[in-house]
């Protein structure tokens, strides 16, 4: 499974949706994921890829990690996975 598909699976599970309902343009807000859901998703992503995501829940917009859409999240994770390899 690609990084993208795995992340979509995690986000879909958090949002209680089918993966096909999660588009690249979706924001977490669109998907009904609140702040606790976000940190839970990031935890699941970290576990899945054995990486550490630089996300601070106090200042989501100030973090190096862009969570503004599913696409930016996937891009950020792909970069972290590549750096780790």
């Amino acid at each position: 499974m690609s990084v993208k598909d795995k992340i979509i699976e995690i986000i879909a599970e958090q949002a209680v949706l089918e993966p096909s309902d999660v588009t690249m343009e979706s924001t977490l807000e669109d998907l009904g994921i609140d702040s606790l859901g976000l940190v839970e998703s990031i935890f699941a992503i970290e576990e899945a890829f054995d990486i550490s995501v630089p996300f601070n829940a106090n200042e989501p917009t100030e973090s190096d990690f862009d969570i503004s859409s599913v696409a930016t999240i996937i891009a950020g994770i792909e970069k972290l996975v590549a750096e780790q390899a």
């Binding site: 839970e40 935890f43 970290e46």
Partner: peptide, 9 residues
């Protein structure tokens, strides 16, 4: 080195 985010709540 990582725990679930809901440990404290």
């Amino acid at each position: 080195n990582r725990v679930h985010p809901f440990v404290v709540p």
